[in-house]
Each structure stands twice: as C-alpha cells, then as structure tokens.
Amino acid sequence: MDPAGRVLAKARLPEGVAGMARLHALVAGQFGAADPDEVEVVVGIETDRGPWVAALVAAGYLVFAVNPLQASQYRKRHAVSGAKSDAADAHVLADMVRTDSHQLRPVAGDSAEAEAIKVVTRMHKTLIWERTRTTQRLRHALREYFPAALEAFEDLDAADTLELLTKAPDPAAAARLTTAQITAALKRARRRSIADKAAAIQAALRAEHLGQPAVVTAAYAASTRALVAVLAVLNEQVTGLQGQVEAHFGRHPAAEIILSQPGLGPILGARVLAEFGDDPDRYASAKARKNYAATSPITRASGKKKVALARYVHNDRLIDALMSQAFAALNASPGARAYYDKQRARGADHNPALRQLANRLVGILHGCLKTNTHYNETTAWTHPTQTLAA
C-alpha cells in the first residue's frame, strides 16, 4: 500500500526463508527507479517476536507490533458487518501503519541476551502455572474419594507427599503405611519435626472417612498415580529451569541494578527484565513504562463524572512479577512500607494499595536504569521541596 492508501500488491507468503525472500522481492518491485536506501518500508504485524519479526527488523523495515485488540477495533472503521478474513486483516494492518503509525509502538530493539532471558523465564513461569493447575486437579480428585489425604498432607506438590501418594494412592493402602515409611519420606524431603509430623500423617490416614465403591476408588487411584507422576516431572523441570533463569539473568549488564531494587531477587528480577526488555529507547519516560506495566490507572471522564480505574488489559506475566515485588518490598524497604501504609490510611484496600506501590517501584526502576545507578532507599523515598525565588 502506498502513502495514499492505494494497494500496490498482495500475496500469501509461505513460512521460512522462502517466504521472506518473496516478501523482499515483492517490496523491491515497487521501488521502480527510486533508491532503495531512500525508501522507508513500514510493516504492521500482530506479534512482537518470532523469526519473521527478527528477519523484518534485520532487513531494515520499520516494524510495528499491533495488538490484536487494536486491530479488532480498527477493523470496524472499514466495515461494521463483522466479516473477517486474512486478506481483510492484512489490509487493516497496512492501513493502520499508514495512517496511525505515530500512535503505535515499534518493535523494541532488545538484545539477544534479553530475548534469551524472556524465553527461559516465560517457560519457567508457564511450568509453575501448569504445576498449580495439576495440583488443583489432584486436590479435586482426592476430595472425591480420599479426603484423608487432604488432611494428612499440607503441600500436595511436595516431594514427600508425592512419594507417599505413589506408594499408597488409595485409602486402604495409605492406612497400611508404617511410621518407618512415612519417616523415611519426610527425611528425604528434609522436613523438620519428623517424628511429630509422621505421627500426625499416620493418624490422619487411618481416621475414618466417607469413601467410594472399590471399583470407583481403583479408577481414582489410577488417575492419582498419573497426576503424581506429572507433578514429579514438573517439579524436576521447574528446578532445572530455575538454574537456567539465574544463569542467563546473572550475565546481563543490568542485573545488578535490578537486583538492587527492593523485593526483586534473581527470579523476579529476571521476569521483570524479560517483560520490560532492555531497549534503552523503548520507554520515553517513567510514565510510559508505568503505562506499559499497567500499574498506572486509567481515567474515565464524561461530563461531571471522572473516575480512575485499574488497567485490566495488560501483560499478565509482567503485572504478576511487579505485584509480587511490591508485596516482598513491604518487608525489604521501610519507604515502601510507609508508602503502602499511607495508601491504606487513605481508604485503599490491599490490592489497590499494592498496585500503587508497584507503580511507584516501576518509576524508581526506570530512573535507576536511565541513570545506570543502584537503588538508594533515601533517594527513592525522599521528595525534595523546591523553593521559589521571590
């Protein structure tokens, strides 16, 4: 599409090198006698990562990653019928970057190190989420046929719990577990107060509870074995990836600055770096970083009505890491604790107050990264007063 909106060419391209080569040829065919170095090619695409995005940026195109929600709303400017097709979506994306590129965000020029951190941190968090889902499935199954296990074991994904459920996945087998077997599992899991815990677990497993018919219990036991096996693998892979996250993050130049922030350790720090990226020109100001983080509120004003609301369209992984940082900072930073208490005193509930604290911490992080300085408790939470000359 040219600057006037006239469609110059259209094509469906294959994946891989062949598709990229055809795209280059398609674009080059529109230059005519013009010098290719003087022609700017702007590309709209509904993702900010992957081989195609990397190849487009490397080829010198100005690439805008368009949020699918933006494209969906923009589509209504062309038609209100609700019709949708790949060709129409391509036309919408081309028209968006032609007319509204000043409103869009170019693909960030993150380093390869930051991209590597993003890969391992996202998979690490994905496996943790999957472990939580699998644990809930196990909890639901045990509640249906083996409620004694829920009373006996505090953490269903713990190593000792998984070992004992593997040996005894049904009430009858669990009631036959000896103190020695339970104690051995607790020792391998490095538990404390082993004797007391072993006695409590044995008593809970031998207590009377409502049950299911034998054939149903056997079916549930088979399901429990499968879920326990999945949890064991997930635990192993989460631990292995944690080491990879720490190793990749430790080699990044900004790691020390990020680790100096209150509430951020190697894992949370790696997640924050991965989701923010390390392009120094990506965020024009602290406000821009806060808006991307979705910690800053949005304002809805109409007539005399004006309200500030939380942003519900956000990067789930980033906001999760920032809220975890804010909660940890309550004990790590007196300034953060005082700021949180101030919000609560103004009537804010826990989550809104924590979100405001996270918003403040994002601004502090932005300043530290821009000036290449470590976090300082006094500087971060002191507001100097300005004296105006008479």
Rank of each mutant, 00 (worst) to 15 (best):
A203H: 13
A222Q: 13
R139M: 10
R190D: 11
D155I: 10
I201D: 02
A219G: 12
V216M: 10
A214Q: 14
A141P: 01
T183P: 05
D196P: 03
T166L: 08
R188C: 09
A221W: 08
T161N: 08
E208I: 12
D160G: 05
S223E: 14
T217C: 09
L227V: 01
R176W: 09
A185H: 02
A172R: 08
F153Q: 01
L177Y: 05
E144L: 15
L165A: 07
L227E: 06
K187F: 04
T217G: 05
G211F: 03
A149Q: 07
G243C: 10
K197M: 13
A204P: 05
T178I: 11
A218R: 13
D157S: 15
A180G: 05
R192E: 13
A184Y: 03
F146Q: 01
L142H: 08
Q202V: 11
L156Q: 05
D160P: 02
L156G: 02
A198T: 07
I194Q: 10
V228N: 07
T183K: 10
T217V: 14
E208M: 11
L231P: 03
A232K: 14
D160T: 00
A200F: 08
I201W: 01
Q202W: 06
P213V: 12
L138I: 02
R188T: 13
F146N: 00
A148M: 03
A204K: 15
L156M: 10
L165S: 07
A189R: 02
L142R: 02
T166K: 11
I194A: 08
A174P: 03
P147A: 06
A152L: 07
